[in-house]
Nucleic acid binder design. Structure first.
Lengths: 300, 300
DNA sequence: TAGTGGTCTAGACCACGTG
DNA sequence: ACGTGGTCTAGACCACTAT
């Protein structure tokens, strides 16, 4: 992979220029007047400038496409994250270590990690290291639960599982999950209760292939965020989600389960969640009672 | 100026800034002797390491407060943005220029701008420069209008101003705007229509001090996003906002203006908008009809 | 051709957290 | 004291845009 930036490939294009440059040896190129350096032999440094430089000694094949080195490093790190080489909550190798592993400078690794941190895939902690984020952490928990009580601190309520069964995906769900109608999915229905009040009615569909063995019992026994269970037991990490929000009237079922009158306004939240590689793995339709809670959102 | 990282000075007064720094001439401070020492004289360099580095030449005792150099540079740039030195849509000085103005390396300026770009205060365009963002740009427009039609592209509908008057701030609004009850505010009520359907009923309160001269006529004549008008005519730029969303039943007024039955579910969006320095300048309560539109939100 | 942001490297020091 | 991330510098080359 790598397909180094400069690598030959690049050459082809307009850039040609340097071309041979890479070879450090005897000054191919005179150009870099770098001369000044008396004492300190600047050394091989002037490799093809940034890009190619040392880069990975691995593979070669400069395929057609190519991206900045740090993007390639980022992709490599992401792959290790996905493959489970470094698990949620664990520390990943230090920047220095990764730099030497991938044969690039620490600065390049840093930039790759910066982006991963911005995407919340990892979190840096000064003096300690860089850690794979997990849905067990408090901070992360509320990224996916935006319901805040009018009074008091945000908290996780009790979950009552109504149902958990495997079935064939209806057309609409299949479309959202990018699978075929009729493919296996797991359907869950549950009610979340805050301070003794039924507040959320969720209907969830999960990719069948990723959640073999998920039962109502497991869900009921688990204390804590559902996504933490998915991450720990099924190796599926929710990375991001997209929601469509509307105000809808409560139908009979919802009214009964949430103890509100039929027709009462409820917040409808349709979510599609994605894992690594932007692959959708969950569709969720939540109905929220917003008389004592509100959905918090920041625009920036 | 700049209260350099280390510097003792800076500290307190923010004001002065420009002055010093800018002045290239006489070096206020002597220090920079650093003549490019011979090649790699590691030596001299080791000034206070990074922080002080070249920058200011003062260093010494890290007083109580101090932030990274790039944060200070960021604050200086933000101030220039706020003061209007560089107006929305305009290009700000190049990284090199800013680096020499503030007497820091280009890399430090770059990091400051990186953060400003992440906050959407400026936007970088390769090969062209860095520009002050504006509510006139399409991209920016929809950051603050999250209502998306079920079918078709997002668009700005027609705005019908019902009312625009000055009045004394009610307690609740005053609290949100961080002013005193009874202080002057401008209240606007309007209806947004998409494809011929009344979809949004907004009730808006603006800081009276910032919007002198705002009239219903001006609002009506203006075509385009309201925030673009505020930015162009009143020098007040909305930087970020925080929203609280609920589902509520339509009251008589809303029902009539939005052509829905009384009691119909509406999305209630309570927004507080902030300008530079995180100062609240607007409180807005919107009621959205979400039968053919939905509120789009991404969690990440 | 010139200027601007974008990428990359290399090395130094700082602040934090832990033994 | 040591290791890790955080900050800063300096210089080189690349890619894009406009002239």
């Amino acid at each position: 992979m790598s397909s180094l930036p400069t690598s030959l490939t690049g050459a082809a294009t307009p850039g040609a220029q340097e071309s041979g440059a890479a070879t450090p040896g005897a000054g191919t190129q005179p150009l870099s007047p770098p001369a000044p350096a008396p004492a300190a032999a600047p050394q091989a440094a002037p490799q093809t400038g940034a890009a190619s430089g040392s880069a990975p000694g691995l593979q070669s094949v400069p395929s057609p496409t190519f991206s900045p080195l740090y993007q390639q490093i980022k992709a490599l790190i992401t792959r290790s994250l996905q493959s489970g080489e470094w698990k949620p909550g664990e520390m990943i190798p230090s920047e220095m270590e990764l730099a030497s592993r991938y044969k690039v400078s620490q600065g390049t690794v840093r930039k790759a990690i910066d982006e991963l941190a911005a995407e919340n895939l990892v979190a840096r902690r000064q003096g300690k290291g860089t850690f794979v984020t997990t849905h067990h952490e408090d901070v992360v928990k509320f990224r996916f639960l935006r319901l805040v009580p009018d009074e008091g601190e945000p908290h996780y309520g009790a979950s009552r599982v109504l149902e958990c069964k495997r079935l064939r995906a209806p057309a609409e769900i299949a479309r959202l999950l990018d699978i075929r109608t009729g493919d296996s999915v797991v359907q869950i229905r549950r009610v979340l209760t805050f301070s003794g009040e039924s507040t959320v009615l969720d209907e969830i569909w999960l990719l069948g292939a990723n959640f073999k063995g998920l039962t109502a019992e497991k869900l009921t026994e688990w204390k804590g965020p559902m996504y933490a269970l998915f991450e720990a037991e099924f190796g599926t990490r929710m990375i991001r989600a997209s929601e469509k929000i509307r105000a809808v009237p409560a139908d009979e079922t919802a009214a009964e389960l949430l103890s509100v009158p039929v027709g009462a306004p409820l917040l409808s939240v349709e979510r599609v969640s994605y894992t690594y590689g932007d692959r959708p793995v969950e569709v969720r339709r939540g109905l929220y009672v917003t008389t004592r809670h509100y959905y918090q959102n920041d625009l920036s």
